[in-house]
């Protein structure tokens, strides 16, 4: 596991210390902040925007604003720095969305044409086919037909979780556990085939 939060006893305390150092003028602490949040922000913003170029722009703006506010002592709860970073990124995306929505339609359409669609590339298609093969193996290896039903009804039919629980006599916690174990098994099967969770081969 490479998550910083696994190492730190308290991520809040580490964040507060980082804020304190930046306020004291420590330039290395600023670099640490950028390194600490860059990948996570990329991930968060890409999920929010669905557009890589826009998420990269927003990540730069977010880090710039966060650094300025930390330097000026405008972060009221330094131990909740991650929350501040997240809400800054989200607000920037909301503002950017509103700005785009006000643009003339022709301009918006040309922006749509520039979207990159990673799902349609040959590599993405090959990986998706591999994922399906692994999912079939997972279904074959599940210990009970009930677990197969849970996966299909939740992920494929997208049935309401409460309805699935009621009809299969499961508590919400039991249903979550079935899904959690399926994900763990899926991960193990992918690794057996030399694929990691991020979709690339042998990069761990």
């Amino acid at each position: 596991m490479s998550g910083d939060d696994r190492r730190a006893a308290s991520p809040g305390a580490a964040d507060a210390e980082l804020v304190r150092r930046i306020r004291a003028g420590d330039r290395r602490a600023e670099t640490e902040l950028v390194e600490r949040f860059s990948q996570g922000l990329d991930f968060y913003l890409l999920r929010l925007t669905g557009n890589r170029a826009r998420s990269e722009d927003l990540r730069q703006d977010t880090l710039r604003i966060v650094l300025e506010k930390v330097r000026k002592g405008e972060v009221r709860q330094p131990e909740r720095l991650a929350g501040f970073v997240r809400s800054t990124a989200r607000n920037l995306e909301v503002a950017s969305y509103r700005k785009r929505a006000r643009r003339p339609q022709r301009e918006r359409l040309s922006a749509v044409e520039n979207l990159t669609d990673g799902e349609r590339g040959p590599l993405a298609r090959a990986l998706a086919a591999e994922d399906r093969r692994v999912a079939r193996r997972l279904l074959g290896a599940l210990p009970s037909p009930r677990d197969r039903q849970v996966l299909f009804r939740v992920y494929v039919a997208e049935e309401d979780r409460d309805a699935v629980c009621a009809s299969l006599g499961l508590s919400p916690a039991q249903l979550n556990l079935v899904l959690f174990r399926a994900r763990q098994r899926f991960k193990a099967l992918l690794r057996e085939r030399g694929i990691n969770g991020r979709g690339a081969r042998g990069e761990r």
């Binding site: 596991m1 998550g3 939060d5 949040f37 991650a82 970073v85």
Partner: peptide, 8 residues
């Protein structure tokens, strides 16, 4: 907020 700094 947690996953911003948790690669796992």
């Amino acid at each position: 907020e947690h996953y911003l700094t948790c690669a796992a």
